[in-house]
Computed example of a mutant assay.
Amino acid sequence: MVSGDSRPTIVLVHGAFADSSGFDPVVRRLLAGGYPVVAAPNPLRGVASDAAGVRALLDRIEGPIVLVGRSYGGAVISTAAAGSAHVRALVYLAAFVPDTGEAVEELVAKFPGSTVNESLKVVPLTDGHVDLYIDPAVYHDRFAADVPAEDAAVYAIAQRPAAAAALGEPAAGPQAWHTIPSYTLVSGADLIIPPETQEFMAVRAGATVRVADGASHLVFVSHPDTTVALIDQAARETAS
C-alpha cells in the first residue's frame, strides 16, 4: 500500500442498477490499508449531469485522487475527471470507457454476448421519461452469477434504476483517459458488458489491464481482493 500522507483519496462511483452499498467489501479493505475513501452519489440520470455532480465533489477534495468507476460509472468518471489536476489515476471495474460521441448503449452492443436488453424491466414515469431496472428474476444468473444467491437477491432489491436517456446519452467533451493513466479490471464471464467489449475499450485507452477469470458483472463484489490490488497499484504507480 502507499504509505503515510502520500495516500490518495479513493473516490468510488457506482454504476446503473446498483448503489454504493455494493462497494462495502472494497471499502473495508481500502480503509484497512489506510486509504481515505469517498463514495460519490451517482443519480443515474444522464452522463453530463451525473459527471457534473461527481466533478463538484472532486473539486472539494484536497490532495491526489484515484477515481474508480464501475459499469456506467466508468462513463461518468471519464467526463468528470477531464482537466482535473488532482485525479492521478482512473480505475475501471467492468466499466464503460467511452470516447467522445459514444453512448453506453452503443458500446454494449459493439460485440456479442450481452444479455442486458432482455434483462430489463421498463418503468414509464409520469414526466414522459423511462426508468430501467434489471429484472430481479434474472439478476443472479445474468448480473451476479458468482455471488451467493442470497446476496444477489439483496442487491436486486436494493438496485437503483437508470434513466433510459442516460444509457443513450453520448459522452461529450474531452474524455479523461486520454491524459490520465487508466487501469481496467475485466470481468471474464460478464453477461452485461461482454469481456471483448471491456478489453477493446481498455486497449484503446492504453490501460493497465487485469482479468478476473469467471467473474460476473459484480466483479468488485466477488473479487474484492483483486479489485483493491488494482486500485492500490494505480495509487502506487501514479504517486508523486
Rank of each mutant, 00 (worst) to 15 (best):
S3W: 13
S3F: 15
R7Y: 13
H14C: 04
G15P: 08
A18K: 09
S20T: 14
S21D: 01
S21N: 11
G22Y: 10
P25G: 03
P25F: 06
L31C: 05
A39H: 10
A40D: 01
P41Y: 06
P43Q: 06
R45Y: 03
V47D: 00
A48V: 14
D50H: 08
A51R: 05
R55W: 10
R55E: 01
R55F: 10
A56W: 05
A56C: 01
L57T: 08
L57F: 04
L58I: 11
R60W: 07
I65Q: 01
R70G: 14
R70H: 15
S71W: 03
S71C: 11
S71H: 13
Y72N: 04
G74P: 05
G74V: 03
V76C: 01
I77Y: 09
S78R: 07
A80C: 06
A82S: 15
G83P: 11
A85C: 08
V87H: 08
A89E: 02
L90N: 02
Y92C: 03
A94F: 08
A95C: 03
A95F: 04
P98Q: 04
G101V: 10
E102V: 09
E102F: 13
A103C: 00
G113K: 12
G113L: 09
T115I: 05
N117Y: 15
V122I: 15
V123Y: 10
L125S: 13
T126K: 15
D127L: 10
G128S: 11
V130T: 14
V130E: 06
V130A: 02
D131E: 14
L132N: 03
Y133V: 02
I134Y: 07
P136M: 03
A137R: 12
R142M: 05
R142E: 02
F143W: 13
A144C: 12
A152C: 06
V154C: 03
A158S: 04
A158G: 02
A158E: 08
A163H: 12
A166H: 04
A166E: 01
A166T: 09
L167N: 02
E169T: 13
E169L: 03
A171I: 08
G173R: 06
P174Q: 12
P174D: 13
A176G: 08
A176V: 13
H178Q: 14
T179L: 10
I180G: 06
I180W: 04
Y183D: 01
L185F: 10
L185W: 05
V186A: 05
V186M: 04
G188T: 11
A189L: 10
D190Q: 12
I192N: 07
F200A: 14
F200C: 06
F200R: 12
A202M: 06
A202V: 10
V203M: 07
R204H: 12
G206M: 06
G206N: 04
G206I: 09
A207T: 13
V211A: 07
A212L: 07
A215F: 14
L218V: 08
V219S: 12
F220D: 00
F220M: 10
T227Y: 00
A229M: 00
A234D: 07
R236V: 15
T238E: 00
A239N: 11
S240N: 11
